[in-house]
Structures are given as C-alpha cells and as structure tokens.
C-alpha cells in the first residue's frame, strides 16, 4: 500500500469510527429531551437550549475525529 492510499484509508476510518459513539449519544440526548417536552410542553424553552449545549459537548469527540481526518487529508 502506498502512502497516499494509506492516508485516505486512515482518514475514512478515523471519522467513520469516531462518529459512531457521538451519533448514539446525541440520539439518546434528543430522545430524552423530546420525551420530557412531550410530558411537559411548557418546559420546551428551557429544555431546548440545554439540549443543544449537551449535544455540542457530546459531539466534541466526533469533531476531534473530524479534525484528525481533515489534518490527515489536507494538512
């Protein structure tokens, strides 16, 4: 395998595996938030911004994987 092919493979693997966990985690966060809004619709104004913050924190590992992949590809 030459170095170029290895680079593409590594970038694909990095973001593909890195996106697995945060995908599941964000799904859980969204489902719980929607559940609580469904139970108490008046609370949506308070739940939604907190959900976005929690989601952004969950997302950070995916973002690290993405940054690694981009650095491998373009850096």
């Amino acid at each position: 395998m030459d170095i170029e092919a290895a680079k593409y493979l590594a970038a694909g693997l990095a973001i593909g595996l890195g996106a697995l966990g945060p995908g599941i985690g964000e799904g859980i966060a969204a489902s719980k938030a929607l559940e609580s809004i469904g139970r108490n619709p008046e609370a949506s104004g308070k739940v939604a911004p907190l959900m976005f913050v929690a989601m952004a924190i969950t997302e950070s590992t995916a973002i690290y994987a993405l940054v690694v992949a981009l650095i491998i590809l373009f850096g």
Binding site: A56, E59, S60, I63, Y64, L66, V67, L70
Partner: peptide, 16 residues
C-alpha cells in the same frame, strides 16, 4: 483543546 477544536472543527467542517 476541547473548547477550541469544537468551534474550529464545526466551522471548518461546514466549509469543507
């Protein structure tokens, strides 16, 4: 690292 990469990664990834 986490604060800066979160913002940078999201915006740069959006561009790409």
């Amino acid at each position: 690292i986490s604060l800066s990469f979160r913002l940078f990664g999201n915006i740069f990834a959006g561009e790409v």
